[in-house]
Design a protein around this nucleic acid. Structure first.
Length: 217
DNA sequence: ATCCCGAGGG
DNA sequence: CCCTCTGGAT
């Protein structure tokens, strides 16, 4: 099927209704704690991250406090969320840079954020969008997969898909759309076995695998 | 077995 | 460009 501008708008309209009000499940109390939570969330469920952050943030909620730990100590604190060595190393580097160059405060500037150890394009977009309300579409594994399947935006790299989505979606909806696509990816449009049977986008999705989808029958 | 709101390094 | 890092949930 040919995914026209009109069909993209319909895809977005339905997603916006289905996932209205869904946001991040990560718990945080400041820009710094959200930044840490997002970094910990790589290859890990939000629920698991929240268990860890509930435990550590009462003691380690600033770059100064967290940056005072040794690598081994921080590894032990975050061990259960996986990738713990690289995350601990990056978090320490990030804390030190925040303390030394930014007076312990998380910068709002995108280019400054992505220079922090462990902070890439996706993390920077999430933090800017959630904390300060900047319009941004963070392209993670879900957004990348769902956007390509819907042909809402296509591309072989996250940046390509991000730029495509920016053209396909009104700017005021960028931050919300990021969450719509994530939740659709989590609940329905799974990586391996997408649940097309229960999908609300069957007739507007070019990748629908239902044997006789409405638009073929 | 397969996937989870990635990023750094080679 | 591809590889590696990693425990937990299902």
């Amino acid at each position: 099927m040919r995914v026209t501008k009109k069909i993209k708008a319909e895809q977005l309209r339905r997603l916006s209704i289905a996932y209205a009000g869904e946001g991040t499940m990560l718990k945080y109390t400041s820009p710094f704690t959200l930044l840490v939570a997002v970094i910990l969330s790589a290859q890990c469920t939000d629920k698991r991250v929240n268990i860890i952050t509930d435990r550590i943030f009462p003691r380690l909620d600033t770059p100064e406090k967290m940056g005072a730990l040794t690598q081994a100590e921080l590894e032990r604190e975050i061990h259960d969320c996986g990738l713990y060595k690289s995350k601990a190393k990056n978090l320490l580097g990030m804390c030190h840079m925040l303390s030394e160059e930014y007076d312990g405060k998380v910068p709002e500037d995108f280019d400054k954020l992505v220079k922090l150890p462990g902070v890439g394009r996706k993390t920077a977009n999430v933090v800017r969008s959630v904390v300060w309300g900047y319009p941004a579409i963070a392209v993670d594994t879900h957004v990348f997969r769902v956007a390509n399947r819907l042909k809402l935006a296509t591309g072989t790299t996250p940046l390509e898909v991000e730029e495509g989505l920016q053209k396909a979606i009104p700017k005021k909806d960028w931050s919300a759309a990021h969450h719509w696509l994530i939740w659709h990816g989590r609940r329905v449009c799974h990586a391996r076995k997408p649940d097309c049977e229960t999908c609300i986008l069957q007739d507007v999705c070019p990748s629908c695998t239902v044997s006789v989808p409405p638009w073929k029958g």
